[in-house]
């Protein structure tokens, strides 16, 4: 007997009625669908939310640049496609000069992968931004790894061993390295590298990844990983989560049945916090990348953004802002997916 019959519930969800049509409405299939269905709905909702947010992001970016003094905005519309196709669209809609007209023209351009041309170099912004984004992703992901490698042992050690003389010093250590100014740390890194390891880490005429030697890659990664200002927060968050989960009743049950508490606590105590902290710290690392890339001459979004802000190169800074927002939303989307899959309860409530 299944629960629907028990409660006298005769209503069929859309998927159930579809299953009925496909002759799949065995109780077994229903049972399975009851589980999978809400998950699918939640995933679709998350995707739509991400799209809506990206739409909002484009509005914000456009509005800021639209409100900027000077006629520099028209530069944005001077991409390769603009002359013919896009303006036609706008004109056919009848509002090429209004705010909305310009926005829709611009948005259509973007959706075609056309971010205009750089004022300073005259090159296509899209290609430059894409290659810079990849470089920055390399830097930030590796730096995040460094941060996690520093933070995890501290968090696990201090939360599992409540009574240890190292507890205080480790916490203070995490605080101190989080308060160090990143740019100064970068210089110290360069100094140590040149004077102690006899290696000058600044790539000259960089641009192609293959040219980067291991030191040229490692030093900026280490500096950003240590100095992004997130270590103490990551430690505190992980510590809180791990000790909270270790106090959970189901962990006590796991202990009582002689099972490994780490196996049972892994999902809630390690996997979800990690994915959450990574996704929520992406903006911080992208911000830190601006400084590190500027110091180390790293050909990424950060240095590009800095240069563009210097030159008031609108198409470029706009492209970077969009790319950064896409990265942030992607990270958060990945986290939500992991969360929904790991914790099916979330979509059932």
């Amino acid at each position: 007997m299944n629960t629907h019959q028990q409660t006298g519930d005769t209503w069929l969800s859309p998927v159930q009625s579809l299953a009925h049509k496909l002759n799949l409405d065995s109780p077994w299939v229903k049972h399975k669908l009851d589980f999978v269905m809400p998950m699918g709905v939640t995933i679709i909702r998350e995707l739509l939310l991400a799209l809506a947010l990206l739409f909002g992001v484009s509005l914000v970016v456009f509005t800021i640049l639209y409100a900027a003094p000077g006629d520099s905005f028209s530069l944005l519309l001077s991409g390769e496609r603009s002359a013919s196709a896009t303006e036609e669209v706008a004109q056919s809609l009848g509002f090429s000069n209004s705010w909305f007209g310009q926005y829709s023209t611009w948005l259509i351009n973007i959706l075609h992968g056309d971010l205009g041309t750089s004022i300073r170099t005259g090159q296509s912004v899209f290609e430059n931004v894409v290659s810079a984004t990849i470089n920055t992703l390399n830097l930030t992901l590796a730096a995040m790894l460094v941060t996690l490698i520093i933070a995890y042992p501290i968090a696990i050690y201090t939360s599992v061993r409540s009574a240890t003389p190292l507890n205080g010093p480790l916490t203070i250590f995490a605080y101190v390295i989080s308060a160090l100014p990143l740019f100064w740390l970068a210089y110290i890194g360069i100094f140590v590298s040149t004077n102690v390891f006899d290696y000058f880490p600044l790539g000259i005429g960089l641009g192609v990844e293959d040219d980067m030697e291991i030191m040229q890659f490692l030093l900026p990664v280490l500096i950003l990983g240590i100095g992004s200002g997130t270590v103490s927060e990551v430690v505190r968050f992980l510590k809180l989560e791990i000790s909270r989960v270790l106090e959970e009743e189901y962990i006590r049950t796991a202990k009582a049945k002689g099972a490994s508490i780490w196996r049972h606590g892994f999902k809630e105590g390690l996997l979800l916090p990690t994915s959450q902290i990574i996704s929520s710290k992406i903006p911080f690392f992208l911000g830190g990348a601006i400084i590190v890339e500027q110091v180390f001459n790293w050909p990424g979004m950060g240095r590009m953004a800095w240069q563009a802000a210097q030159d008031r190169d609108f198409p470029v800074i706009m492209g970077i802002a969009l790319a950064a927002a896409i990265l942030v939303r992607l990270g958060s989307l990945v986290h939500r997916m992991i969360y929904i899959i790991v914790n099916p309860r979330a979509s059932h409530e």
């Binding site: 992001v57 903006p283 958060s332």
Partner: peptide, 24 residues
Amino acid sequence: TYFNNLVDSFPRLVLILLVVAAFK
């Protein structure tokens, strides 16, 4: 919540550089 997520979508320094470029 939508507004908060929207604000969180931008790395703060990038947003500031965008504004710097637009308005000085």
